[in-house]
């Protein structure tokens, strides 16, 4: 019993360290990548239906017409920057211009809170666990079971810190959009791409260290044994190299598309709820029907599943490049070329 607890404590300590590393990495990566993309993406004002024209929207339209047109007016749940732009119409243009910094900055809020929370839990750990510690241990144990089920006991323990931190962080990112006045940073492609690049780096590191240069090239060539094998290898190698880069791209796009689509759905439903009351002569009075409420529960569920999918796929990409000492998992490796 005590030995078991010791193991748990060890893995939660590693989890904490890896969490901080992943969070910092993606937090730095996202603004750097985002700086290439300066269009005010998806800053459609949800509450445009209410008053004649929001000054913020007008301002953006005048000064930044091209970009606005390019981004399209995609509805979105209103967040803090939108309200700030409404309160201070003069600063609206600046706020829209700096949106590419504000969006990833939400990730830093999550990082801060997650760090403080985990520190608080980690400091007060004891043999007789408090309620919070029990919850955290349950989460860690669940992740341990899941990842060890895929990667096997030995490799699973080695990669649990990274994958577990990834799962928890993505769940936080996705759920953060449901907090009033907050955005989910994962509805921003740079953020999800940053996470996918983390996975890419882990996979590449594993591949080159565990298999070695010869092993990797042989793996890319499909382990040729006869003349036909070598002929096919010429075709297989470029395919595998392309795949290495497509994997993180699709990983990032999937998460981004799901969360962004979800946000757009919620925004449209909110807008529909406002439009229902448009016959009512409410000049500027915020009036609406919360149509997006059922979809928010759906969003919570789907966000969790997407985080799980991201983690599982990362685990399977790692599994694909691990040396096959047991042939139990081979069908996974071939299933999605």
């Amino acid at each position: 019993m005590i030995a078991n607890r010791k193991k748990d404590r060890l893995s939660s300590g590693k989890l904490l360290a890896a969490a901080v590393a992943v969070l910092l990495l993606s937090g730095w990566a996202s603004p750097a990548i985002a700086s290439g993309d300066k269009t005010p993406q998806g800053d459609g004002m949800v509450d445009q239906a209410g008053e004649a024209k929001a000054p913020a929207a007008k301002k953006t339209k005048l000064s930044n017409k091209e970009a606005w047109k390019k981004a399209g007016k995609v509805p979105e749940l209103p967040a803090l920057p939108h309200f700030l732009a409404k309160i201070m119409p003069k600063k609206a243009h600046t706020i829209h211009k700096w949106m590419w910094v504000i969006r990833p900055a939400y990730a830093l809020i999550i990082v801060t809170f997650a760090f403080l929370f985990l520190m608080a839990v980690y400091r007060k750990r004891s043999i007789l666990p408090t309620r919070l510690q029990t919850v955290m241990e349950m989460i860690v144990e669940g992740l341990d079971n899941m990842i060890c089920g895929i990667l096997g006991e030995k490799h699973g323990r080695a990669y649990l810190p990274y994958l577990g931190a990834l799962f928890l962080y993505i769940v936080c990112l996705n759920w953060f959009g449901q907090v009033p006045l907050m955005l989910s940073p994962s509805s921003f492609f740079a953020c999800t791409l940053g996470l996918a690049i983390c996975t890419f780096c882990v996979v590449q590191y594993t591949q080159w260290t565990k298999l070695g240069v010869k092993g990797v090239i042989s793996h890319w060539a499909g382990d040729p044994k006869d003349v036909v094998g070598y002929c096919v290898a010429v075709l297989l190698i470029p395919l595998h190299i392309t795949e290495e880069f497509i994997k993180p791209l699709s990983l990032g796009l999937r998460l981004y598309g799901n969360i962004y689509g979800e946000d757009v759905l919620l925004g449209s439903m909110l807008m529909l709820g406002i439009l229902i009351f448009s016959f009512f002569p409410a000049n500027g009075i915020p009036l609406g029907f919360p149509l997006m409420l059922p979809f928010q529960f759906l969003a919570l569920l789907l966000s969790t599943i997407q985080a799980l999918v991201f983690t599982l796929l990362s685990a399977i990409y790692i599994l694909m490049v691990l040396p096959h000492d047991d042939h139990e998992h081979e069908e996974h490796a071939e299933s999605h070329a």
Partner: peptide, 20 residues
């Protein structure tokens, strides 16, 4: 199943992203 479902579902998501 979840992994397979993610791969299948990704196709719709790509279409959706294209629209966006």
């Amino acid at each position: 199943m979840i992994v397979g479902a993610a791969f299948i579902e990704a196709l719709t998501i790509y279409a959706l992203i294209t629209v966006f």
